[in-house]
């Protein structure tokens, strides 16, 4: 019973941090590169162009 619980938790902890990091990274990219709010757009304008993102 104890062994089962340990196996289940180790296989789960492998994927959770990975998914968290991927979602966090995707959030950062979306916010900095793609959200069209005026303040964000203006601040990130040059970078969005230079990085090849669709800008405006």
């Amino acid at each position: 019973m104890a062994t089962q619980a340990t196996t289940a938790s180790t296989s789960r902890v492998g994927i959770l941090p990975v998914m968290f990091a991927v979602v966090l990274g995707l959030g950062v990219i979306t916010l900095t590169g793609h959200v069209q709010a005026a303040a964000l757009h203006d601040a990130a304008h040059d970078v969005r162009h230079a990085t090849g993102f669709p800008c405006h």
Binding site: V18, A21, L24, V28, D46, V47, A50
Partner: peptide
């Protein structure tokens, strides 16, 4: 300065996904 900050943020976002993979 804004460009530097946003470039660092964007590549940190990419690094997060890349290192996870």
């Amino acid at each position: 300065a804004l460009s530097v900050i946003f470039t660092m943020l964007i590549y940190t976002g990419y690094a997060l996904m890349m290192i996870a993979l």
